[in-house]
Design a protein around this nucleic acid. Structure first.
Lengths: 122, 122
DNA sequence: CAGTATCCCCCAGGATACTG
DNA sequence: CAGTATCCTGGGGGATACTG
């Protein structure tokens, strides 16, 4: 603690790389995006995140929960109802993620065009 | 083309998911970050991105090249020198990525604290 | 409904060896 | 130096079946 230890993702083993891992997997980002609309049930998420398997959705949600980005609330009803909701921390992460989505929307054509050209060996 | 087709990452097969894939893998983000400092040789990148294998670095750079985010310049010298540099598009991607890095720096403690608590079953 | 538990396959990616 | 080429393994993740 003598030197203030900054998080440096370029160094192996730095915890901030762990964040990159979490952001890394496709489902995490998509689930956060959906939850930004408000609390959602498991089945709603499953339906809205096209292509996610039950296993991966559960796994993703458990990870988000562990990271303090999402809360899980079980209602004592029959049939059971479970709602997932972004925490304040989760909402704060939404901001940079939105910036990324905006970039994608704005520049995806350029990227795809480039890929096309490469694929055609032009 | 009757309805303006927006990129929707929540739909399977949407090309914008391809971008999530690219951002997804750790090396891409790290390499872009390093290249933001200016043009770099292969060996420099290899050294600065701690833990990347030769194979993955090559693969990552080829991908970035294909997407039009990075240029590859070969100098006819002995020994050979190859420099990688961000394109304007690559630089523009830097902006949202920086926002993400900032978030990580600012909130990593909270995330790690949460993980700790979960790991300890508290 | 909202999961857990299992099996199992595939391929991302590391290690190693070789080349222009 | 800046890569290819090849081999090989771990585990990510789908499919399926079962449960509170």
């Amino acid at each position: 603690m003598t030197t203030p230890q900054e998080y440096d993702p370029y160094v192996q083993g730095c915890p901030s790389r762990a964040l990159l891992d979490r952001i890394g997997d496709r489902w995490t980002v998509l689930v956060i995006g959906i939850l930004a609309d408000g609390p959602q049930r498991f089945s709603q998420l499953r339906r809205r995140v096209d292509g996610v398997s039950q296993k991966m959705l559960t796994q993703t949600l458990r990870g988000l929960e562990a990271d303090g980005l999402v809360t899980r609330t079980v209602y004592a009803e029959v049939p059971p109802r479970v709602e997932y909701e972004l925490t304040a921390l989760g909402h704060s992460l939404r901001v940079p993620l939105l910036a990324l989505e905006d970039w994608a929307r704005e520049h995806m054509d350029e990227v795809l065009g480039s890929r096309q050209r490469v694929a055609e060996r032009v």
